[in-house]
Design a binder for these strands. Structure first.
Length: 426
RNA sequence: GGAGAGAUGCCGGAGUGGUCGAACGGGGCGGUCUCGAAAACCGUUGUGCUCCUUGCGGGCACCGGGGGUUCGAAUCCCCCUCUCUCCGCCA
């Protein structure tokens, strides 16, 4: 969340940013500032009363030790009145602080100055495009048909076992998934990311830390028996490693990567756009996360974008990079680049990665700080993450784009992971 | 699932209801010594909120979380959460 200090000092900037993000209740900002003023004056008064109370209590202690019981009980009488007043003030202060916090968590991050205004993905800004769009014949099949034809993916089997949106990969399909995971992890670790294999269930505090809770509770599967949530992305456990941590400046940037299955309820989505692997409830993803010094986060963002670009290039997929407009930007993000690859049979661009800088928004929730030996005070770090990469749509594009009358050609970089003689899936 | 133990600062670990923001040890940092380092010795070492006369200033809160008792709680009582050990079950 934004810090109250930032909102107070940059009211105009915040309001402008919220406008670009199409935030529905900008009047919350002034309510927050008013309530904070109230909180401050209550705090001052409460602190004064507490100081007086502490003074009297010490005095009573001294008198009792000196054996002056009489005088002690006189002082005690004075404390009882003070105590009542203190309780009232403390309660009011508590209410103010609670309101303030409830409102603060509802304020999304404000966008970076470069973020274009706009409402939907139609207003996103194309940054660049790469790779050649393959020319397929008219009878080219979408990936869901290829999946059955070559026995790679079985959607009906998933429906039987679990329900819609839980595809089963089998045979070469399962092997291709494994190849992609291994390839991505290898590339990420070569680029300096430390590999993690985190828990897939997280507690409430973790969900709050990265911003999924309390607002987007409905997007996660909730295991009510133990009050745990299935992760919607590895971002949640991997970023929460640093919850309540004060790092040393010299340890930055921290670069982590993790493969995990991801679970998303995505309630209410159905139809043609979500056929096959385009949108599922459980999918595999390899994530990269960076924690940086505030002055370094935009360099890190570009570094992550280049890294992801290299991955899609190596997979020989036609791709484009778009910068999300204000309205399309996630709740916690200041700047996001989406990567889309072209699935040539569906003739559609599919989002396969979202690379974001959250600046200090998550860090503030996480209480993730760092200390520079030069400064006395610790300050909030910046967090970033990106998919490198999400598998289902990559799989969809590979199957569709590489289909030939003889079979599906496996991208060269994946061949070493596919076993001998499997350059072509027949 | 059953039984028990515990939760204190960066770590380990004390703590009779007032002099405890917290002993002691370790670690870190600074210094003395040294050509340099180690050792030794000395000093220092939490987080957050807040105020103003912005000073290397003051006040307040924080000993897992929340309530309670008390003039006063790390310390006593209640509830919750978490961790550990043993048993059971199990990949």
């Amino acid at each position: 969340m934004l810090t109250i200090q930032f909102i107070r000092n940059n009211r105009a900037t915040v309001l402008k940013g919220l406008r670009i993000k199409n935030f529905s209740q900008p009047d919350l900002i002034d309510k927050i500032i008013d309530r904070d003023n109230e909180r401050r004056s209550l705090q001052v008064r409460t602190n004064e009363l507490q100081a007086e109370m502490n003074r009297l209590n010490k005095e009573i202690g001294k008198l009792i030790r000196a054996g002056e019981e009489q005088k002690a009980s006189q002082v005690k009488e004075r404390t009882s009145l003070l105590k009542k007043e203190l309780e009232t003030h403390a309660r009011d202060l508590q209410h103010s602080a609670t309101d303030l916090n409830d409102w603060l968590v509802q304020i999304p991050n404000i966008p970076h100055p470069s973020v274009p205004a706009g409402n939907t993905d139609a207003d996103n800004k194309l940054i660049r495009q790469g790779g050649a769009i393959p020319r397929l014949t008219e009878d080219a099949l979408p990936h869901w048909d290829l999946g059955s034809k070559y026995r790679l993916i079985d959607f009906d089997m998933g429906v039987k076992i679990t329900g819609g949106g839980f595809p089963v990969f089998r045979g070469k399909g399962a092997r291709l998934q494994r190849a992609l995971i291994a390839y991505f992890l290898d590339q990420n670790t070569s680029a300096g990311y430390e590999e993690f294999l985190p828990p897939l269930l997280v507690n409430e505090a973790s969900g709050f830390g990265t911003g999924q809770l309390p607002d987007k509770e409905g997007q996660m599967y909730h295991v009510t028996g133990d009050n745990l949530y299935l992760i919607p992305t590895a971002e949640v456990p991997v970023t929460n490693i640093y919850r309540d941590v004060i790092l040393q400046a010299k340890d930055l940037p921290i670069k982590n990567t993790a493969y995990t299955p991801c679970f998303r309820r995505e309630a209410g989505s159905y139809g043609k756009d979500v056929r096959g692997l385009n949108r599922v409830h459980q999918f595999d993803k390899v994530e990269i996360v960076q924690i940086t010094h505030p002055s370094d986060s935009y360099r890190a963002l570009e570094e992550m974008v280049s890294h992801v670009e290299k991955l899609v290039t190596n997979l020989e997929l036609p791709y484009r990079i778009v910068q999300l407009c204000g309205g399309d930007l996630g709740f916690t993000s200041a700047l996001t680049y989406d990567f889309e690859v072209f699935a040539a049979a569906q003739k559609k661009w599919l989002e396969v990665s979202s690379v974001s800088n959250f600046e200090s928004y998550q860090a503030n929730r996480l209480k993730l700080r760092f200390r520079d030996p030069a400064d006395k005070k610790s300050q909030l770090a910046h967090t970033l993450n990106g998919s490198a990469l999400a598998l289902p749509r990559i799989m969809a594009a590979i199957l569709e784009n590489n289909q030939t009358p003889e079979g599906i050609r496996v991208p060269e970089v994946l061949c070493p992971f596919m076993g001998p003689g499997n350059e072509l899936i027949r």
